[in-house]
Design a protein around this nucleic acid. Structure first.
Length: 421
RNA sequence: GGAGAGGUGGCCGAGCGGUUGAUGGCGGCUGUCUUGAAAACAGUUGAGCGCAAGCUCCGGGGGUUCGAAUCCCUCCCUCUCCGCCA
């Protein structure tokens, strides 16, 4: 959520940011509501002050007549307050709702652009493997090896679900454990195991609601939502709290399944394991002091890249342009892994600095060395999307005989096996 | 799901209709003392909104009252016991 004071004092800055994102925002309506809100608040505050003052006098009044007179006076003013308060509540609710639907402001070094065409290559690592045969897509490799079953998954749950079995299921678990071990042991993250169902309030904190309800699975009976990413849970972990500066930066890693309805993406990636309603993800997350978030964003991105390096998967790092960034992000690097079966790079991680955007929404704060209460910055990044890593391994490590070599770093997690066959 | 007990400031814990935004303790900060530190002593220390006057906040929402942390209703959460259960 943006700071209403920023919008008030510098609306052109916000307007310009929305232009860069190629998005519309009801800035004028919000400003008008803000004026109205403060006007009404001044009015009720003045009246309330009178009520308070009269009530104090009632307690001290000498005789009964005097007391009754003061009571009547106070009651009349109280009625006026009661008449105005619903208006205040309505204006506040409307303003908050509009404000919650405005995306974050892109940082100044985010490139211009409307869509992925505007993204900028930052660096490349590794070489796409050369094959002396025609490489296959994972949706052919997986079922042939008997480790992926799309048909039975469709029978159980419909489209965009997959049953993994045998070494396929083991590979998924191996990747999760490998990634978690790397980040906890070598990159200093603390492992978190959050709930997969969280409240509406928590979803608002991360920015998922109110705008993207269509993308979420929910249980109306209990008012809970299935997390579309562990980020949703982690961003609200300290909601309403004042953190200690000594706890920052706080670096967290969580493995969770992620659930997405993928509404609006019909026709895209319908085959295979690329775009599922349920997928595993190891998520990196951090709370930092504002002045440290830029550096930690770079570090966190490197931590995610390290997974691809350890697994020997070629990738490139892209800096997203303003028009292609997610709702809450101020700056985002995407990691794209080389997929021989698609003959292309595909997103496997997205690492964002959201600055204080989620902290404002979730009311997460920290007390700095001077005792001042401030909003921390938050960072998130996939480290990595497990399903896409699995299919990247199948496609990059496939051999002429149809088997798949297991990357060395994963073998200890696969009972020492060297090949999937 | 049933019965009971609770939810108060960073933490613990008083208050149960009128200078109580809230006694006290712990923690934090500042000072005195000390070569320095500890201890001791003294002072200080919640958050939000508003240009300001001031207003709001004692789990959330609603009500009673001139006035509510304090009374009533309702919802949520925590704990204990029972039931159910991986």
């Amino acid at each position: 959520m943006l700071d209403i004071r920023l919008l008030r004092d510098n609306p052109e800055l916000v307007r310009d940011a929305m232009r860069r994102r190629h998005q519309e925002a009801p800035i004028d309506e919000i400003l008008e509501l803000d004026r109205r809100r403060r006007e009404l608040l001044t009015e009720t505050d003045t009246l309330k002050a009178e009520v308070n003052s009269l009530s104090r006098q009632v307690g001290k009044a000498a005789d009964a007549d005097e007391r009754e007179k003061l009571k009547t006076q106070s009651r009349e003013i109280g009625e006026r307050v009661k008449a105005i308060e619903p208006q205040v509540a309505a204006v506040e609710a409307r303003q908050r709702d509009l404000l919650l639907r405005i995306p974050n402001l892109p940082m100044s070094d985010v490139p211009e652009g409307a869509d992925e065409q505007g993204n900028v290559l930052v660096r490349k690592w590794g070489e796409p493997p050369q094959f002396d045969f025609t490489p296959q897509a994972h949706w052919d490799i997986g079922p042939r090896l008997g480790i992926m079953d799309f048909e039975r998954a469709a029978k159980l749950s419909g489209s965009r679900f997959t049953v993994l079995r045998g070494q396929g299921a083991q590979l998924e678990l191996a990747l999760i454990n490998f990634m978690v071990d790397l980040h906890t042991r070598e990159h200093g993250y603390e492992l978190i195991w959050p709930p997969y169902l969280i409240t509406e309030e928590s979803m608002i904190g991360s920015g998922q609601l109110p705008k993207f309800e269509d993308g979420l699975y929910s249980d109306k009976r209990d008012g809970l939502y299935l997390i579309p990413t562990a980020e949703s849970a982690l961003a609200s972990l300290y909601s309403g709290e004042i953190m200690a500066e000594a706890d920052l930066p706080m670096k967290l890693v969580a493995y969770t399944p992620s659930f997405r309805r993928e509404s609006g993406s019909s026709g895209q990636d319908v085959r295979g394991y690329l775009r599922q309603h349920q997928f595993s993800k190891v998520e990196l997350f951090a709370f930092t002091k504002p002045e440290e978030s830029v550096a930690l964003h770079e570090a966190l991105t490197r931590h995610a890249e390290r997974v691809l390096q350890e697994l020997g998967l070629a990738y490139r790092t892209m800096l997203l342009c303003a028009g292609d960034m997610g709702f809450a992000a101020a700056k985002t690097y995407d990691l794209e892994v080389w997929l021989p079966g698609q003959n292309n790079y595909r997103e496997i991680s997205s690492c964002s600095n959201v600055e204080d955007y989620q902290a404002r929404r979730s009311n997460t704060r920290y007390r700095d060395a001077n005792g001042k209460v401030r909003f921390p910055h938050m960072l998130n990044g996939s480290g990595l999307a497990v399903g896409r890593t699995l299919l990247a391994i199948l496609e990059n490590y496939q051999q002429a005989d149809g088997t798949v070599v297991i990357p060395e770093k994963l073998r200890p997690y696969m009972g020492g096996a060297e090949v999937i066959k």
